[in-house]
Computed example of a mutant assay.
Amino acid sequence: MEQVITGHTTASRATQQVGTLEWWQQGGKWFSYEGHAIFSRMAGQGEPLVLLHGFPTASWDWNRLWPMLTQQYNVLVLDMLGFGFSDKPVPYDYSIEDQADLIEGWISGLGLKTVHLFAHDYGCSVTQELLARDQEGTLPFHIASICFLNGALFPEVHNPLLIQKLLCSPLGGLISRGLNRRIFERNFRRLLGPANPPDRQDMDDFWQLLTYNNGRGILHHLIHFMEERRCHRNRWVGALQHATQPMRLVSGMADPVSGAAMARRYRELVPNADVVSLRNVGHYPHFESPWDVFSAYREFRSQQ
């Protein structure tokens, strides 16, 4: 199954934005994980829907979908350890498996028995690990459905930017500490499609979240997830291939990192692949074209 949608205009996108980054932070709550403070937000009513963000951003990525999703679901989101408003400890052994432990403990602690997952980028890898645990019978809750947004589900077709490769190299510490606003903004804009470029306030918000609590200083530690994807490739791809719950990939096709090639690989390897392709949309579909993403997600859930 495949659908192709042309991304909406900037004006359409802007109408979906609510609040400010300060509003987002003030509406959150913190809880403790291994002695570290984790930022979270919860709102809405209905079936629990957990949102998982990407690298190097944070839960704020979902703010344009937030008012739409919370009208229909009980929506839960957090900043994973090392991201956004959560603690960014040094030293720390950051890993996808540890982030999955964080999500698992959070959901279990809330007493939820069944959840739906909606994941982007880095969060897709965390979701694959959770899905593998679900299949192994070790997860204390059931995953009812999964929707993916532009994640490196198949590392063999992942095409990282040069700066991401440098952060993974022996020079990673220097690159991380030397990252400035100009370099960040130039690379971030390369990830986005042509239809909905970010404005100055958008870039201020992304930069603030990245640098909050010395976030630049740990980027080279966080980005080792790219190697984890290669090491766990068979486990995580196998989880997709053996999944029994409904799954959908919503793919921004203008994404140079995890776009068209990743969608093609998904169709090749995942049985009965359900893919929605967004033309002119890049690596952050939920930021660039929120109405199209919401429409695709609402339709996906209506089929269950």
Rank of each mutant, 00 (worst) to 15 (best):
I107S: 06
R216D: 04
T9W: 07
H8Q: 13
M203K: 13
M262S: 05
Q72N: 08
R181E: 06
L78C: 10
E47T: 05
W60K: 10
A263S: 11
T127V: 02
G54I: 03
V50A: 04
A152M: 11
W24S: 07
F300I: 14
R182N: 13
E185L: 00
L139C: 11
R233A: 15
H158G: 01
R279N: 01
W207Q: 14
R186S: 10
R190W: 00
L51Q: 07
R229G: 12
N280I: 01
L222F: 09
R64T: 01
G123Q: 10
M203P: 00
P89R: 07
P155Q: 10
P89L: 01
N159W: 00
H116G: 07
M247I: 02
V115M: 03
G123W: 12
P246M: 03
K165Q: 15
G35P: 02
V237Y: 12
Y73L: 00
L130Q: 15
L240Y: 05
E288Y: 14
L149V: 11
L179I: 12
V293I: 15
C231S: 11
Y212C: 02
S95P: 01
Q245A: 06
T10H: 09
D202T: 01
M226N: 14
T70G: 02
F154V: 05
Q26A: 07
E104T: 15
V18Y: 08
G178D: 07
L112A: 02
T211A: 04
C147F: 01
C124F: 06
K113H: 06
R279A: 09
F206V: 07
G111R: 04
A37S: 09
T70R: 08
